[in-house]
Every structure is written in structure tokens, then in C-alpha cells.
Computed example of a mutant assay.
Amino acid sequence: MDKKSSKNNIKAIIFDMDGVIINSEPIYEEVNKKIYPEYGINLTQAERDSLRGTSLFDSWQKLLNKFEVKAEYSHYKIEDFIEQHIHSYYVGLANSEDLKLMPGVKAWFEFFKEHGYKMIIASSSYPPVVEYIYQRFELAEYFIGYVDSTTIINGKPAPDIYLRAAKRLNFKPGECLVIEDSENGVKGAKAAGCKVIAYNRAADPSQDLAAADLEIAEFSRDNLHKILF
């Protein structure tokens, strides 16, 4: 069955990256546990969870409005915090031997490619991180490219990144299927008018994914059929 016969009229796929394409969230979690206290910011797990899916700019804007950093960092601009954070994420990913594609996701890539669906990545991460993942896992074989947090004004849960991704794909948002794993991501994708699949492999209770059209725990053939046929 080709894409024209899809019951949902889906013509293109928009993938989130972290926690959907790759298992990067545990790596980021370890980085965050170290980097925030370094600046004198001590967050609860719930506070860290609330930032999931948002860009570093939005995260740091919220944090700097709420917390006072250590005196030695008082001269830092928000760009300085972001630059250090991006570097820490990059190093964490590059040094991780456990960084892998999510189980089954490559088979979905192959299916969508074989059946003529255009694909793009919409990530809240910054270009050095997205580009590293894009190259490391040879994603250009499947995707037309990516949009990242520097290409938009308002990050998730605003719809901006999905609207931009749909425009890059040359399809209407309603013709695009978004695959997300965060509450902020699901909200943003729905606000854009896209169909949304919530990938919740770990059954994470910190993320309210009820707004998604369907919630799945694995990239299986059965779930693929639930979405498209």
C-alpha cells in the first residue's frame, strides 16, 4: 500500500531527534545533573522534566529568571550558558559508547523511504549536536535535512518548528505525521495542526502525552499499520 492510500492522508513524516531517533536522553540527563549545580542551580527531577523538549535558549531564559547563579558566573550572558551547555552535550554524545538508534526506528525509516514519504527532523537541539547525529548515523540517506532551534523564534511547545518543517517538506501541516516523545513536543505539533504519534518507550509518567493521536511504546510493524493503514 502506498502513501496515497493511507487512511490518514499522511504524506510526510517529521521526526523529533532526542529520545525518538536516538537514545540521547540519559546522556543529557547526566550532563544536566552536573552542569546546573556548577552554576549554583539545583533543580528537582520534576523541574528538569518540565524542560524536556524545549530549546536551551528557552530553558536558560526560564532558569535565569528564577535562579541566581554563582558570583563567578554573574557576568555571563545567556549565550555563554548555552554555548557551554551545547559543548557539554556534544562531548557527552561523542564519548558515549551506548549512543544508538532507537530499537526498530531504522526499519521505519526504510519503510517510509520505500513508500515515497518525505522525512525531516525537527529538533530543539542546536546545529552542532543535530549535525553530529545526522552524520554519525548517516541520516541523509533517509531525511531531506533538519530544522533546529536556531531556525525559529518560539521553541516547543509553540508550533513554529513544525510549521517550518512542513514548509520545508512542501506539505500542509495536516498532511504531516510528527513523532515526538515529550509533552512540549506533542503540544507544539498539535498546535501546528499535524497528526502526532507519542513515542513513550519508557512509559515516562513525567510527560503528559494524552494530546497525541496515538501513543506507542515501540517502533514495530503492528504500530506502523495502526498509523497508516
Score class of each variant (00 low, 15 high):
Ile161Met: 12
Ser96Asn: 14
Pro205Asn: 12
Tyr146Gln: 04
Ala198His: 06
Lys4Asn: 13
Tyr142Trp: 11
Leu209Ala: 05
Arg221Asp: 14
Tyr126Lys: 08
Ile41Thr: 13
Asn23Ile: 06
Asp18Val: 03
Leu43Ser: 10
Ala202Pro: 02
Phe137Asp: 10
Ala122Tyr: 01
Asn42Val: 13
Ile78Ser: 11
Lys62Asp: 12
Ser55Pro: 07
Gln45Thr: 14
Val130Ser: 03
Ser182Arg: 08
Ala210Trp: 00
Trp108Leu: 06
Ser59Arg: 12
Tyr117His: 08
Phe15Cys: 04
His115Arg: 15
Lys77Phe: 00
Glu72Ala: 11
Pro173Ile: 04
Ile82Phe: 02
Ser125Leu: 02
Pro159Asn: 09
Val147Asn: 07
Tyr142Met: 03
Leu209Asn: 05
Ser6Trp: 00
Ile121Pro: 01
Tyr132His: 13
Lys33Gly: 13
Ser50Ile: 03
Phe111Gln: 10
Arg164Cys: 09
Ser6Met: 04
Ala165Tyr: 00
Pro173Gln: 11
Tyr89Phe: 12
Val20Ser: 03
Pro205Phe: 02
Ala198Lys: 06
Pro128Gly: 06
Lys226Arg: 15
Asp98Thr: 15
Val69Glu: 08
Lys66Met: 09
Glu72Ser: 11
Ala191Lys: 13
Trp60Asp: 06
Cys176Phe: 00
Arg168Cys: 08
Lys118Asp: 13
Thr54Phe: 01
Thr44Ala: 11
Arg52Gln: 10
Leu139Ala: 05
Gly19His: 02
Ala212Ser: 07
